[in-house]
Design a protein around this nucleic acid. Sequence first.
DNA 1: TTGTATGCGTTATCAA
DNA 2: TTGATAACGCATACAA
Lengths: 338, 338
Amino acid sequence: MTIKDLAKLSGYSLGTVSRVLNNQPNVSEQARKTILALVEAHGFERNASAQLLKQQRTKSVLIVVKGTSNEMFAAMVEKLQSLFADTDHPVIADFIDEDDNEVRRAAQLCRERKPSGVLFLGGNNENFRGDFGRIDVPSVVVTNDAHELGFLNLSSVSTDDCKGAACAVEHLLACGHRDIIVLGGDRAISDTSAKRYEGCVEAFRKNGLTFDDETMYYTGRYSYEFGYNGMKQVLCERKKLTAVFAMADVIAIGAIRALFDEGLRVPEDISVAGYDGLRIGGYFVPKLTTIAQSVDLLAERSFDLLLSCMQGAQAQHLTVPFRLLTRQSVRQITEIEG
Amino acid sequence: MTIKDLAKLSGYSLGTVSRVLNNQPNVSEQARKTILALVEAHGFERNASAQLLKQQRTKSVLIVVKGTSNEMFAAMVEKLQSLFADTDHPVIADFIDEDDNEVRRAAQLCRERKPSGVLFLGGNNENFRGDFGRIDVPSVVVTNDAHELGFLNLSSVSTDDCKGAACAVEHLLACGHRDIIVLGGDRAISDTSAKRYEGCVEAFRKNGLTFDDETMYYTGRYSYEFGYNGMKQVLCERKKLTAVFAMADVIAIGAIRALFDEGLRVPEDISVAGYDGLRIGGYFVPKLTTIAQSVDLLAERSFDLLLSCMQGAQAQHLTVPFRLLTRQSVRQITEIEG
DNA sequence: TTGTATGCGTTATCAA
DNA sequence: TTGATAACGCATACAA
């Protein structure tokens, strides 16, 4: 069933059928009615490939998601889909592996699907430097500051990872912790980890202390597994330790499990702070103290920004606030001076 | 940059360029080399829409995933992608809302992308009954038994949800629990919930007890939220209670949090069993006792089955084993007789 | 308001 | 081994 068949069946020409299908004005009520009836009766659907091949741009918006099982991104996709549902922009969501090059993938999909805008959930500035030149539609990176890249069609919405991490560490310091280790990611690979690392250094310095890369920073993937194994390794190596800052909630959860398995209690023996504010953190026992990024806020800002850029506005780089959720996994180990 | 440009640049004709791009045999080494060099130099990529429009079927395999933030499905997609990576079948993963009609969506995508096979992660038999007739390529539903539907091109791979639930409940009974409530889904909507419900009834009957829908079964979505709120509601209504069977790990986790918030300990005061075997269950405190479905096994079987069906084999309906993981969230409340 | 004709980028058929 | 040419299904400029 093609529009050609529709034309034959209805007695109208190809052009008229096409116009009806595209809701164009210059069509008689009569024609519209009979053709739409036929469409309904035969369950006709346009061939998307043909349509795409013909049009040079569609109204659709592409969302490239980095990481198939990233809870925060999954939640953001849902939020974004509900936001776009109220517009006339269909969304194409594409999930890629955490290690894949999101910009190349987007460039390929731009050729294939001709979207009028791109949204990146997660991203690495290095990749943008390399291939973003091939993308010419308004784009927004979420959770990564793209300010320094200087592309005119690339905006970004992120939380200040440096300040966020600093806030977490300062909270630990304020609670009296001095023997702190940090479980994070490889700074050479992940911009996010690099920023959060900076925040740690900052917080220590501000308190007249030094953050020592060698002895205080352990790296791995943002996963339960690394949290668990990394923590075990730390416990083997170090004797003195009162608090852990994990650069992701999943790491924190893995770490807490490792501590429990070694007979240590959280927060009684060791305090653990996370980052992200995943839903599971509010259900975990103990409830996770963490730096919460607002999924809704990130999604809404990105949505607004992309829409306005698609209407011609200039690229912008926004920062959305984070919140320190002081829950149950961190405790005060010194008397509060009064 | 199109193959037309490639033809001009290389001095060869369109036909030759197309043949080179498709690795066809009857092309001179000379032509192949010069054209491939041009492709490399200009970073040429074929226009997928044009290709699709021309071909009536591609080698790609479509995976329709029901539920954007379903951890088990996310893990399965990853596994499947790695399996298909070793074949010449590109995979198209499509994530839809839990409430959307997966079969309609697949039918639409079949028209658009012309895959040679479809994999459904999650699904509802009702939807298949309605629209699967529109899909004519070999397909496999995972986690749902499609045996009774009788479609010749529809296979399925699932765990026996009835037996799995029965196993969980029997474990609770064997541990001496009699005052049990079940947190599950709406049987009218979810086939999975209906099967697991059956299993509960079965297990009770086998032990000379009766499972009472009215007082023992509470329904909601498979989510932390329902686990939490459902459990709270139960605690308001009932006085006597020693164990909970949650039809999903996320429900179990929500329920455990609710119990802790009410000052009850798990498993000392109340035992909780889950279903699914999510990774988080192994990190949770206490570690979750649960019925584990093997993600790897489900993925591998579906993969094998789909490939063989695409090569002409008959549809099959497979069951993969589950395992009862007895961990920390359920305890024995009677002395073991002996 | 409607019909006709052209081309989007590709593959495939046929001749050369 | 290569080149010319006809589709694939649709949108659109232009003619009627």
